[in-house]
């Protein structure tokens, strides 16, 4: 599974990265987490309120820090 956290580096974006990484570690999901700050790439996903979370190319959330439960459900755990 390929998880991308998108954000130009605001506080919420870093929080999102932390939440996603924690859930991956806790559930032992087979997933890589990448943090993307490139605005052209972020816009390429059609996201324009950051932070955004993209899993395997699908946009899962935008504009907020997701809860752990939400991230778990995206990972199918």
């Amino acid at each position: 599974m390929e998880i991308k956290v998108l954000g130009p580096g605001c506080k919420k974006c870093h929080e999102t990265e932390k939440v996603v990484k924690e859930v991956v570690r806790e559930t032992g999901a087979d997933a890589s987490v990448e943090y993307i700050t490139d605005i052209a790439k972020i816009a390429g996903y059609g996201i324009f309120s950051t932070p955004g979370v993209v899993i395997d190319g699908k946009v899962k959330s935008t504009g907020k820090v997701p809860s752990k439960a939400e991230v778990k459900s995206w990972l199918g755990k």
């Binding site: 130009p8 605001c10 059609g46 324009f48 309120s49």
Partner: peptide, 13 residues
């Protein structure tokens, strides 16, 4: 709802 840190992606969008 919109914070100035996402002004850029929003503009492009």
């Amino acid at each position: 709802p919109f914070c100035s840190c996402s002004a850029c992606p929003l503009f492009i969008g």
